[in-house]
Design a protein around this nucleic acid. Structure first.
Length: 292
DNA sequence: TTGCAGGGGTCAA
DNA sequence: TTGACCCCTGCA
């Protein structure tokens, strides 16, 4: 990882395996937004950042070396060798295509609590609405911060959400998921489950613990583990992944558990990364309403 | 203009 | 295994 300090922030040199569009549009995060100049602005754990591709380099604007090393390097998984991962996965011809399409994807390491709530909200929902709901929760109940004259809001803590009523949360656009969000907040704020200890568990135990939360089923639990705990072996199966897997590898109407098992056998410890390439590829190339 | 299906799943019967 | 679920969007 080779970077230099500039007036604007940190410049990551010759970052071939980093494409902001792929990272932020592949469905793993909900608080990064494209700007007219092609950069992305986002909020993560109370920090704000603008990320822009400059030729072969990546500019991280609005941060300094200390924060970059202490936080963003981990957040963007910059110490992992994605070139090696892609080489390994590209031995499969379908993955090879998917990787050529989404070559700059990286798996973010996001805040566990925010990821948990975001993916509870994602059930039977679609991305623009999930983003709007997460944004409303943050602007109503998060901490306000001003950066370069613009106001941002951090994602509200479990304790803050635990004080609310189901109706308060419903008003942010959560719909029937409001009761799940509130219960999750009360479980975490009450200390019944320590989310950070889940990250230290093996995948099987962490999944079992997550499935105890109402509103968290197999797909949501796997997304939480993949996008906030760096558990790269999980393979979340949603409607798009099901479609792409059935199209290229399996027969129609294969059950999600069977798809997960197949992926574990085929992609092993890298199944989660493979899932993201496949998901992004499927969403972008298979059309919005495919009957397959 | 109105009505209806459907959406990054989960729960309960 | 199946239907309901917030509610907004796209389409006929």
């Amino acid at each position: 990882m080779d970077y230099i300090k500039t007036d604007e922030g940190i410049l990551l040199k010759d970052a071939k395996d980093f494409q902001p569009r792929h990272i932020f549009e592949c469905g793993q995060c909900f608080r990064w937004n494209a700007m007219p100049d092609g950069s992305y602005k986002g909020v993560a754990e109370g920090r704000t950042l603008r990320v822009k591709k400059n030729g072969r380099d990546i500019l991280f604007a609005g941060t300094d070396e200390q924060e970059f090393r202490d936080f963003w390097v981990g957040y963007f998984d910059l110490e992992r060798d994605y070139r090696a991962i892609k080489a390994e996965l590209s031995r499969d011809q379908v993955l090879k295509q998917a990787i050529e399409f989404g070559y700059g994807i990286r798996i973010l390491k996001q805040d566990i609590w925010e990821t948990m709530v975001s993916f509870i909200i994602s059930a039977n929902n679609w991305i623009p609405r999930i983003k709007a709901t997460v944004e409303r929760l943050s602007s109503h109940y998060g901490q306000e911060q001003v950066y370069k004259g613009e106001t941002y809001y951090s994602f509200p803590s479990p304790a803050r959400l635990a004080q609310l009523t189901e109706e308060d949360i419903m008003l942010c656009g959560c719909g029937f998921r409001a009761k799940y969000v509130l219960k999750a907040a009360r479980i975490v704020a009450g200390g019944q489950v320590d989310l950070h200890s889940l990250a230290g568990m093996n995948t099987t135990d962490a999944r079992a613990a997550l499935l105890c939360f109402p509103g968290i089923g197999p797909k949501v639990s796997d997304c939480i583990m993949l996008f906030s705990m760096a558990k790269l072996d999980v393979f979340p199966v949603d409607v798009w992944v099901k479609r792409v897997m059935e199209h290229y590898y399996l027969k129609r109407d294969t059950r999600p558990a069977e798809i997960r098992q197949f992926a574990a056998g085929k992609f092993g410890a890298l199944a989660g990364v493979a899932q993201q390439y496949l998901f992004y590829y499927a969403r972008s190339t298979m059309g919005r309403f495919t009957s397959k």
